[in-house]
Design a protein around this nucleic acid. Structure first.
Lengths: 155, 155
DNA sequence: GGGAAACATCAAGTGAGCTTGAGGTCGGGG
DNA sequence: CCCCGACCTCAAGCTCACTTGATGTTTCCC
């Protein structure tokens, strides 16, 4: 327990992310570690920041792959420089803004539908939304995919 | 194509949700249908509203199971009454508000971290967040789970 | 009335993001 | 010196929300 490097257990405890998840992130190249002679992982403190950024980005709805792409501009294994950080957040900002706008619209629709008495009508946006998914392939769906437009409406 | 009842294909076209997904929702009890003599599904128009509500709730980050719970207060197979709708949206509003607040915080953290020069410091909220996950079992994680608090911080 | 859509069921597959388990290694305290 | 717990790898399992495919039935239209 010197000071400089953290064990996986310590990183887990301090970040709240399970060791298995940290190994998984590492397998994806999202974080990096050095190894001891006995093959144990040792993490630099900067990994805590990276993990925090990963969790924050997930909350925004980004996949680990997208996060990895954004990380490709910062050097692995170190804290981002101010400039790199700036580029990353510039990249994510519009995504966050969009997500917030989406949710605000859902909230608005939900609320206005109560007041407007549109429950049985077809003019309601919730009833007759203009953002709709088209079938587009296989596999699971992102929770908040970029929904392609689709024009087919009610009658 | 009389008028009253919709086929699964029509519901799919009008809601933008694939037929297979509609059958899946039905298997979970989220929507209901009657059957023709030949065992084909027939949906009442109200199902369009329900499907729209389901998609909206998913956008907010609710699982289909949670959506089903919320639906348990409205009669299956019919459009919600104004009162039921009110209860549902009252139930979801705080969740939406919370999600929006979370995202705004991430955005704020991202932005302020650029300006504040905290990149190498430990006072930064992103670096030293107070919302952290504890290990809690198996399986996949919700994209935006209710994160239990966890107090273990840096040093 | 005949053929092609559209629909039915059911089992199995998909992808993301992890966890769990088996089986073995490392390292610090008593 | 020995033991326990933390750690290692790798393969397999799991959840969620669907889709795909196989196989069979209905229905609409000409």
């Amino acid at each position: 327990m010197p000071a400089e490097l953290l064990t996986i257990g310590q990183v887990a405890a301090r970040s709240g992310v399970a060791p298995s998840a940290l190994r998984y992130y590492e397998s994806l190249g999202l974080i990096a570690s050095t190894r001891t002679a006995g093959d144990r992982r040792r993490y630099r403190r900067a990994v805590l920041r990276r993990v925090a950024v990963i969790r924050a980005a997930q909350r925004v709805g980004l996949s680990l792959e997208e996060i990895g792409e954004a990380f490709s501009i910062v050097e692995p294994e170190a804290a981002p420089t101010k400039e790199q950080w700036g580029r990353m957040s510039a990249r994510w900002r519009p995504v966050i803004d969009q997500r917030i706008a989406d949710l605000e619209r859902v909230r608005e629709d939900l609320t206005s539908c109560i007041g407007c008495g549109c429950l049985s009508l077809q003019t309601c946006r919730l009833y007759n939304p203009d953002d709709v998914l088209a079938a587009d392939g296989s596999g699971s769906r992102r929770l908040f995919p970029d929904e392609p437009d689709h024009q087919e409406h009610l009658a």
